[in-house]
C-alpha cells in the first residue's frame, strides 16, 4: 500500500537571507507549540536554514514573534485565509 506524495503550500515562510540557523539558532523550532519547524541540513550535516516540515499550523505566531532576526513570516493556511 504505497503512500502518495501530495503537495501542499505551507503557511510559515523563512527568509533564508535573514535566517541565522547556520550560526546555531533554533528559536523558531524550539517555541512552536505544534513542533512543525525543522532545520535544513547541508550535505555535511551542518545547519543551513529553518523550514516548515509539517503542514500542521495553528497560525499562532511565536515563531515570528520570537525570531531574533525577523526572518519568519506566518501566513494563514490557504484553506482558511
Amino acid at each position: 500500500m504505497p503512500l502518495a506524495q501530495t503537495s501542499t503550500i505551507v503557511p510559515v515562510v523563512i527568509d533564508d537571507a535573514l535566517c541565522i540557523a547556520d550560526k546555531g539558532c533554533t528559536v523558531c523550532v524550539d517555541v512552536c507549540p505544534l513542533d512543525v519547524l525543522r532545520i535544513v541540513e547541508g550535505p555535511d550535516g551542518s545547519p543551513v536554514t529553518a523550514h516548515m516540515k509539517y503542514d500542521e499550523c495553528w497560525y499562532c505566531m511565536p515563531c515570528e514573534a520570537d525570531c531574533p532576526t525577523g526572518a519568519v513570516t506566518v501566513n494563514l493556511p490557504f484553506l482558511l485565509k
Partner: peptide, 8 residues
C-alpha cells in the same frame, strides 16, 4: 489545525 483551541 484550524481549530478554536490551540491545536496542540
Amino acid at each position: 489545525y484550524g481549530t478554536y483551541e490551540n491545536a496542540s
